[in-house]
Simulated assay, not measured.
Amino acid sequence: MKETTYKYQEQSLFSISWPLFIELSLHVGIGIIATFMLGHYSDSAAAGVGVANQLLNIFILVFNVTSIGGTVLISQNLGAGRLKDARQLGRTVFGLNVWFGIFVSFIVFFFGEQLLQLFDIHGKVYDYGLTFLRICGISLFFESISLALSAILRSHGYTKESMFVTMMMDFISIGGNILAITGIFGLPITGVTGVAWAIVAARAFAVCALIYLVYNRLALKLEIKDVMTAKKEDIKGLLAIGIPSAGENLSYQFSQLIITSFVVSMGTASLAARVYVLNINYIVFFLRWQLPKGRSC
């Protein structure tokens, strides 16, 4: 592919930021919506899924390390006119997140039981949580790749395209949740299992759509060899920026996990209430973080 076909578009700060705000809201919302919809199915299911979702959010933050670093470094190279370096960084971000996704999905799927046992939950809450954790562990592979592809698109100014893909991902997930919980059209009620597989399908769709957009908008073809080759300098640069940027959110998520482990001892009802309040808190916290200083929700 010739270098002249490697395209990016210049935009204003506002035109870039508002689609990004919506996209991040929708990424956060997919787990929140699943938890609240399962609340109509069973408090035990909502409690188990809520605990599992907190663990999943920790791993998703790992993927954000390279995504954040990639967005910054690719944008810097594009601004400096180093299109070849920006192209290589995009391939490196993609390759790293493929490996991160494989590794984390393996850990969650095969060691999900041990991870949940750290919270000392039992009975139906444990069963629901383990089912959700193992199935959604598969979707973490897709989530890792989609975050990398979104970072590549955003760094080139294509924030709206990435936002629309995330919107479609949420619609697919919500549609699957409705089918799994309500038994509409005479379909069997699959509960937590159906909700989890809906998330897997939604994230798989997002990867396919984003790969198409990266190739179509940027003329950047990602190949298997990109997973095997990466410059050490690029990796160091991505981690140097991404780790400190993700560190604050990671510490916050760990603190919430510790609080949840204390609430577990109070019973299922208390744990379910904790999960509902925590999800509402995510929304408020996210909006407050996005608003300019001096304003509040």
Rank of each mutant, 00 (worst) to 15 (best):
L133K: 10
I152N: 10
V207Q: 00
G123F: 04
V165D: 01
L179T: 09
F132Y: 15
L147H: 13
A148Y: 04
F119W: 09
R154K: 14
L140Y: 08
N216S: 15
V207F: 00
V165A: 04
G183L: 03
L218R: 12
L140W: 03
I174Y: 00
H122Y: 13
L153N: 06
I172Y: 00
L140C: 09
G186D: 05
K160H: 12
D120N: 15
T182A: 07
I152L: 12
G129A: 12
A219T: 09
I178A: 09
Y212A: 06
A206H: 09
G194P: 07
E143T: 15
M168Q: 13
F185E: 00
V125C: 01
T166S: 14
Y212N: 05
A196W: 02
S173L: 08
D120C: 06
F185S: 07
S162A: 15
I178W: 11
M168F: 15
R217I: 01
G183N: 04
I184A: 14
L140N: 07
S173T: 08
I189Q: 12
M163Y: 05
A209Q: 02
H156T: 08
I189M: 05
I211N: 10
E161Q: 10
G157F: 09
A202E: 09
I184D: 03
I181L: 06
L220M: 11
G137C: 06
G191K: 00
I135M: 09
R203K: 12
L187S: 11
D170A: 11
I135C: 07
G186P: 04
A219K: 15
M169Y: 01
L222W: 11
T159F: 06
L133S: 08
I199T: 13
K124S: 15
H122T: 12
F132S: 04
C136Y: 03
F119K: 10
F164L: 13
H156Q: 13
F119D: 10
I178S: 02
E143F: 08
A219N: 15
S162F: 05
P188C: 05
F171Y: 12
V200L: 06
M167D: 00
G191I: 07
V192A: 04
V192L: 00
N177D: 14
Y128Q: 11
F205M: 05
H156Y: 03
I121F: 07
R154I: 02
E161T: 06
V125Y: 02
L222V: 11
L213A: 05
F119V: 08
L140D: 00
I211Y: 13
L187Y: 05
Y215D: 11
K160A: 13
F164G: 00
S144F: 03
T131R: 14
H122V: 06
V207M: 00
D120G: 09
R134C: 04
C136D: 12
K160N: 12
Y215N: 10
G176H: 05
S173E: 08
F142I: 03
I211G: 07
S146G: 00
V207K: 00
G194L: 07
N216R: 15
A201P: 03
P188L: 05
G194F: 07
I178G: 00
W197E: 01
R134T: 12
L140Q: 11
F119C: 08
L220D: 02
L210Q: 13
G191E: 02
